[in-house]
Design a protein around this nucleic acid. Structure first.
Lengths: 221, 221
DNA sequence: GTATGTGAAACCGTTCACAGCA
DNA sequence: TGCTGTGAACGGTTTCACATAC
C-alpha cells in the first residue's frame, strides 16, 4: 500500500474499467490488452496502465491482463468486494427511482432504510423497506448498520438531512441536491448534480451555432 | 466572441456560479466580490475571475460584480436565456423522476414528449405528455421541435435509443445509461452515470480505513 | 483603499517512448 | 515478438501576485 493520494478521476476510471471488464468477462473473454480495453472505454492505453500502476502490477508483459483477475482486483481496490448498506433521505420521485435502481443492487449497494419528511409517506413499504420519519435516522443508522447516506430531498432540506445523517454516525454521503453541504472534515461527501450536465450540453449547443467546437465529453459523472 | 475552446470544467463552474448568484439575487444582494462568491461556491477567487475572463469583463474594479447583471450574462453564455425542448426515451423510474423534476423546469428545460418500448406504458399521460412508442421518435422530434434527447433506458437499449434520436435530428443527447454511446461527431453527448460517484465514495471509505486521505470532492457532476 | 483582470509560476494529469520482461 | 510498467516530456488548469481601474 502506497501513501500517495489518488485523484478522484483515477477512481472514476477504475470504475469504468470494472464496468467494461464485467462485460468482457460475461462474454467469456479471458485476456485483454491495455490497447483493447482503452479502445472499449474510449481512453488512452497508457492512461490505463498508469492508473493501475497506482495500486500494483496486474498485467503480464507480452500477454496483457487476465480479465477475471483484473476485475477482481479493481473491485477489491474500489471496495466493491462487500455489501454497502445505504439509507435514503427523501423518497420523492428521484429517491424512489434510486430505491428501485437495479444496477446499484448488482454492484452491492443495498438500501436498508428510507426516510421522509412528509407524514403521508411514512409507513409506505417499498420491497423490504418501510418509510420512516426523519426523527428515526439516529436510531435506524445504528440498528440497520447504515454506512452511507443518500440525500434526495429538495435543496432547501438537504443540509438538515446531512446534519441528521452525520449525527447518526454515517461515514459517507451521496448528495443529489444541488447545494454545497457543510459537513465535518471526516465525512466523505460526493455531490451528484445532474443539472450541471444539462447546462454543459446546453452551452455546447448554443456555442456551436456560431462557432465550431466539437468536443465530446467522455466521462460520465 | 473569441475562438478559444472552453474546457467543460469552466462551463460546469459557470453553472455553479449561476446557481449561487440566483440565491444571492433572491436574497436581495446587489453586489458580490469574487472572494465572497468563491467562498460560497467553495472555489478559488482567481479561478472565478479567470473563468469569467474567457467571455468578457463583467466586474467593476474596486467594487465587485453586480449580481443581477452577472447572472444575466452567465445565463446568456450558457444558453439558459431560452426554453429548451427535451424528449425523454425510457419512462422507467428514473425517466419518471426526470419528467417531474421541478428544478429542470425552473431552468428552462421542458420535456415535450416521452417514449417507451413497453406497450403497457404507451398512452399513459404525465401532465401534458402522452407516452408514445419508440417508432414515433422520428415524427415527434420534428412535430414538437425537440432539440435534446434524454436517454433513461436500460444499458442494453441505450444505443438503439441514441440511433433513433440522431436519425430524428436532435442535436444533443443526455445519456443516463452507463454505456459509451457511438454517435456521429456532430452530435453533442453528455454522459451522466451516477453509479460512478457511488464507487468513488465507496473507495474513499474503504481506503480511509487503512490510510488517511481527506479529500472531499467539490464539484457535482 | 479595494477588487478586478491577467501575465507568470506552480501544479497536476496525460501522453509519449522505450526499457524490461514473458 | 508483444505488451506491460514507468521515467520524461508535454499540455492544460489552478494559483499567485501585481498592475490597473474605480
Amino acid at each position: 500500500m502506497k501513501f500517495i493520494k489518488i485523484p478522484s478521476i483515477v477512481i472514476t476510471r477504475l470504475s469504468i474499467y470494472a464496468k467494461n471488464l464485467e462485460l468482457l468477462d460475461q462474454k467469456g473473454v479471458e485476456v485483454v490488452s491495455s490497447v483493447r480495453l482503452a479502445d472499449i472505454c474510449g481512453i488512452n492505453p497508457a492512461q490505463i496502465r498508469k492508473d493501475l500502476a497506482y495500486f500494483g502490477q496486474f498485467g503480464v508483459r507480452g500477454v496483457g491482463y487476465y480479465v477475471t483477475e483484473l476485475l477482481f482486483e479493481i473491485k477489491k481496490i474500489l471496495g466493491l468486494d462487500k455489501e454497502w448498506r445505504l439509507g435514503l433521505v427523501g423518497v420523492g420521485n428521484l429517491g424512489w427511482a434510486l430505491l428501485r435502481h437495479a444496477q446499484l443492487v448488482d454492484k452491492g449497494y443495498t438500501f436498508v432504510a428510507a426516510f421522509d419528511r412528509k407524514p403521508k409517506r411514512i409507513g409506505l413499504k417499498i420491497g423490504d423497506i418501510e418509510i420512516a420519519p426523519l426523527e428515526d435516522i439516529g436510531r435506524m443508522v445504528k440498528k440497520k448498520g447504515i454506512e452511507i447516506g443518500v440525500i434526495a430531498v429538495k435543496p432547501r432540506w438537504a443540509q438538515n438531512g446531512a446534519d441528521l445523517l452525520v449525527r447518526a454516525g454515517v461515514c459517507g454521503i451521496l448528495n443529489f441536491a444541488p447545494v454545497q453541504l457543510q459537513c465535518p472534515a471526516h465525512i466523505f461527501v460526493e455531490n451528484i448534480d445532474f443539472s450541471l450536465k444539462f447546462d454543459v450540453l446546453c452551452y455546447r449547443l448554443t456555442s456551436s451555432k456560431s462557432r465550431r467546437h466539437r468536443i465530446r465529453s467522455r466521462l460520465g459523472g
